[in-house]
Amino acid sequence: QWKVGDKCSAIWSEDGCIYPATIASIDFKRETCVVVYTGYGNREEQNLSDLLSPICE
Protein backbone atom coordinates (compact mmCIF):
# COMPACT_ATOMS: atom_id res chain seq x y z
CA GLN A 1 0.00 0.00 0.00
CA TRP A 2 1.27 3.45 -0.95
CA LYS A 3 1.83 6.17 1.64
CA VAL A 4 2.73 9.87 1.60
CA GLY A 5 6.43 10.38 0.95
CA ASP A 6 6.83 7.13 -1.01
CA LYS A 7 8.92 7.28 -4.15
CA CYS A 8 7.13 5.96 -7.22
CA SER A 9 6.96 6.36 -10.98
CA ALA A 10 4.01 7.99 -12.69
CA ILE A 11 2.88 8.61 -16.25
CA TRP A 12 2.75 12.36 -16.93
CA SER A 13 -0.48 13.24 -18.75
CA GLU A 14 1.24 15.79 -21.03
CA ASP A 15 3.49 13.34 -22.89
CA GLY A 16 2.58 9.84 -21.70
CA CYS A 17 6.14 9.18 -20.51
CA ILE A 18 7.05 7.65 -17.15
CA TYR A 19 8.89 9.85 -14.63
CA PRO A 20 10.12 9.38 -11.06
CA ALA A 21 7.86 11.06 -8.52
CA THR A 22 7.04 11.31 -4.82
CA ILE A 23 3.56 11.00 -3.31
CA ALA A 24 2.54 14.34 -1.75
CA SER A 25 -0.98 13.42 -0.60
CA ILE A 26 -3.46 10.56 -0.80
CA ASP A 27 -7.26 10.52 -0.93
CA PHE A 28 -8.16 6.95 0.01
CA LYS A 29 -11.91 7.52 -0.53
CA ARG A 30 -11.35 8.50 -4.16
CA GLU A 31 -8.34 6.16 -4.53
CA THR A 32 -6.27 9.02 -5.93
CA CYS A 33 -3.11 10.82 -4.92
CA VAL A 34 -1.09 13.89 -5.84
CA VAL A 35 2.45 13.21 -7.01
CA VAL A 36 5.34 15.65 -7.41
CA TYR A 37 7.65 14.80 -10.29
CA THR A 38 11.28 14.55 -9.12
CA GLY A 39 13.48 17.28 -10.55
CA TYR A 40 10.56 19.09 -12.19
CA GLY A 41 8.30 20.12 -9.31
CA ASN A 42 5.13 19.57 -11.36
CA ARG A 43 2.20 18.22 -9.34
CA GLU A 44 -0.49 16.01 -10.79
CA GLU A 45 -3.37 13.91 -9.52
CA GLN A 46 -3.04 10.21 -10.29
CA ASN A 47 -5.10 7.12 -9.56
CA LEU A 48 -3.36 5.00 -6.92
CA SER A 49 -3.84 2.00 -9.21
CA ASP A 50 -1.84 3.75 -11.97
CA LEU A 51 1.30 4.30 -9.88
CA LEU A 52 4.35 2.24 -10.77
CA SER A 53 7.32 1.08 -8.72
CA PRO A 54 10.23 3.55 -8.53
CA ILE A 55 12.62 3.56 -11.48
CA CYS A 56 16.20 2.65 -10.59
CA GLU A 57 18.40 5.56 -11.60
Rank of each mutant, 00 (worst) to 15 (best):
T22Y: 09
K29Q: 14
E14V: 15
E57M: 12
V4T: 09
V36I: 14
L48Y: 05
C17W: 03
I18P: 08
S53N: 10
E57A: 14
Q46M: 09
N42C: 11
N42V: 15
I23H: 04
S53H: 09
K7C: 12
V35L: 04
I23N: 02
E44C: 04
T32F: 08
G16R: 01
L48F: 04
I26C: 03
D50F: 05
P20C: 15
F28T: 11
G39H: 13
Y37W: 05
C56T: 15
N42H: 15
I23C: 00
Y19R: 00
L48S: 00
E45T: 13
V4I: 07
C33E: 00
T22L: 11
F28Q: 10
S9Y: 15
Y40L: 14
G16D: 07
Y19H: 10
E31H: 10
N42I: 15
D27W: 12
K7T: 08
D15G: 07
G41W: 07
G5S: 03
R43D: 07
L51T: 04
G5I: 05
A10I: 09
L51E: 04
T38K: 07
I18K: 01
E45N: 01
K3C: 11
T22K: 03
D27A: 00
C17K: 15
D15L: 06
C56F: 14
P54F: 07
I18G: 04
D50Y: 06
E45S: 04
K3V: 13
R30C: 02
Y19N: 04
L48G: 03
I23P: 05
K3H: 13
D6G: 00
W2I: 13
I26M: 01
R30I: 11
E45D: 01
Y19Q: 03
L52Y: 10
S13Q: 06
K3R: 08
G39R: 05
A24D: 10
K3Y: 13
C8Y: 00
N42T: 14
S13T: 10
A21T: 06
N47S: 07
E31D: 09
V35K: 00
A24V: 15
S53W: 14
G16N: 06
L51I: 09
C56P: 15
L52M: 12
S25F: 09
I18N: 01
Y37C: 07
Y19K: 01
Y19G: 04
W2T: 09
N42R: 14
C17D: 10
R30V: 10
C17Q: 15
I11R: 15
R43I: 09
A24S: 07
I11T: 07
D6E: 01
C8S: 00
Y40S: 15
A24P: 05
K29G: 10
C17H: 15
D27Y: 07
W12H: 05
Y40T: 15
C33I: 08
C56M: 14
I11A: 04
E57L: 10
T22E: 10
V4A: 01
S25W: 08
I55S: 08
V35M: 04
Y40D: 05
I18Y: 14
P54Y: 07
R43S: 14
R30L: 10
E14Q: 14
D27K: 01
S13G: 07
C17A: 10
Y40C: 13
L48T: 06
F28L: 12
S9Q: 12
K3F: 13
C8A: 00
L51K: 02
W2E: 13
I55D: 14
E14T: 09
D15W: 08
E44G: 02
D6Q: 00
W12D: 03
Y37L: 04
K3D: 14
E44S: 04
P20S: 11
E44N: 01
T32P: 05
K7R: 12
T32I: 08
G41L: 06
G5A: 04
I26K: 00
F28V: 11
V4G: 12
Q1V: 11
I18E: 04
P20K: 04
S49W: 07
I55H: 10
D6T: 00
S49G: 10
Y37V: 05
G5D: 12
G5H: 05
C8Q: 00
P20H: 10
K7N: 10
V36K: 03
C17N: 15
G41I: 05
I26E: 05
G5K: 00
D50W: 08
L51G: 03
I18R: 12
I26N: 06
V34Q: 00
I23D: 04
S25D: 07
I18M: 06
K7A: 12
I11G: 01
S49N: 08
S9K: 08
A21L: 04
D15Y: 06
N47E: 02
G41V: 06
N47C: 08
R43L: 09
W12L: 05
E45W: 05
A10V: 13
D6Y: 05
I11W: 10
C17E: 13
P20I: 11
D15A: 02
Y40P: 05
A24T: 11
L51A: 03
Y37A: 02
C8M: 00
